[in-house]
Simulated scan of single mutants.
Amino acid sequence: MQKGILLVNLGSPESPDPKDVKKYLGEFLMDERVIDVPLWARNLLVKGIILNTRPKASAAAYKKIWWKEGSPLIVLSERLQNKIQKQVEEPVALAMRYGSMTIKKGLQELVDKGVDEVLLFPLYPQFAMATTETITVLAEEIRQQYFPNLKIESVPAFYNKPDYIEVLSNAIKNHLEGKNCDHLLFSYHGVPERHIRKSDITKSHCKIDGSCCVTPSKAHEFCYRHQCYEVTRLVVEKLGLKEGSYSTSFQSRLGFDPWLLPYTDRTIERLGKEGIKNMAIVTPAFVSDCLETLEEIAMEGQEIFHEMGGKDFTTVPCLNDDDEFVNLLSKWISEWTKTPIEIN
Results as ranks from 00 to 15, higher is better:
Lys22His: 06
Ser199His: 08
Met129Trp: 15
Lys3Thr: 01
Pro148Lys: 08
Ser288Cys: 06
Glu193Asp: 05
Val214Cys: 04
Gly48Val: 14
Val92Tyr: 00
Ile343Lys: 07
Ala285Gly: 14
Phe147Cys: 09
Lys311Trp: 02
Arg33Tyr: 12
Lys331Ser: 13
Glu141Gln: 15
Gly240His: 03
Glu243Asp: 08
Pro122Ala: 14
Tyr146Trp: 10
Lys273Tyr: 06
Lys311Arg: 06
Lys3Arg: 09
Lys207Leu: 14
Pro192Glu: 08
Cys206Glu: 12
Gly255Ala: 02
Ile196Trp: 13
Leu176Arg: 06
Lys242Cys: 00
Ala130Trp: 08
Phe256Tyr: 12
Thr339Asp: 05
Leu329Lys: 15
Leu150Glu: 04
Glu153Ile: 10
Asp265Gly: 03
Gln251Tyr: 00
Glu78Ile: 04
Met96Arg: 14
Glu342Gln: 15
Pro284Ala: 08
Val214Asp: 13
Leu241Trp: 09
Ile135Pro: 03
Thr132Trp: 15
Pro55Val: 05
Leu234Ile: 01
Leu254Arg: 10
Ser12Met: 03
Lys63Ala: 01
Ile341Arg: 09
Glu141Cys: 09
Ile268Val: 14
Asn160Ala: 09
Glu69Arg: 02
Gly99Arg: 00
Pro340Asn: 11
Asp323Ile: 07
Val75Gly: 00
Phe28Met: 04
Ile74Phe: 00
Ile208Ser: 03
Leu176Ala: 08
Ala280Ile: 01
His183Lys: 13
Glu230Ala: 13
Leu239Lys: 11
Leu319Val: 02
Asp323Cys: 01
Cys181Ala: 12
Glu69Gln: 11
Lys151Cys: 11
Arg42His: 13
Phe222Ile: 01
Val167Leu: 07
Val316Asn: 02
Phe147Gly: 00
Asp322Phe: 05
Leu328Thr: 04
Val231Pro: 01
Leu176Lys: 08
Pro91Leu: 12
Glu237Asn: 12
Ile268Glu: 07
Tyr159Val: 05
Thr232Ile: 11
Asn278Val: 04
Lys151Ile: 13
His175Met: 02
Thr314Pro: 15
Gly310Leu: 12
Lys105Met: 04
Cys318Glu: 06
Gly310Ser: 03
Cys318Leu: 07
Glu296Asn: 10
Phe28Glu: 05
Lys3Asp: 00
Thr102Lys: 15
Val155Lys: 07
Thr283His: 10
His195Phe: 12
Val287Asn: 00
Ala93Val: 02
Glu78His: 01
Ser217Leu: 06
Phe313Asn: 06
